[in-house]
Amino acid sequence: MTVGEMAKTLQLTPITVGDESRTWSGVYIGDLLSWVMGRAACDNAWITIMSNVNIVAVATLVDVAVIILAEGVTLEESVRNTAAAKGVNIYTSEKTAYELAKELAGLQP
């Protein structure tokens, strides 16, 4: 399933959309960046409440398909600009990480 289809189904608010036709699979939840780098997989949807600029580099290096910011977290303009320049998909939602993960699980084949 594509990131765009998933975002529509979960009613996520787009922050930066690099490539919404990218396919995602699997979910990783976490805010400690070295845990994310050690455990998240390529193409995962990464749910976090971390919003500083380092999430952009981590998402790029781990090559997650999308970052979903939970609990209504948003990004400062400078972070948004960096993410847009790197073509990273980032959305936000008022839902909790648990609610998001539950809905994402329902979308997995």
Partner: peptide, 15 residues
Amino acid sequence: SLGFGAGMGLPNMKR
């Protein structure tokens, strides 16, 4: 507070 300091960096480098 930026998400670093989990003490997982060096172990990740090894892994």
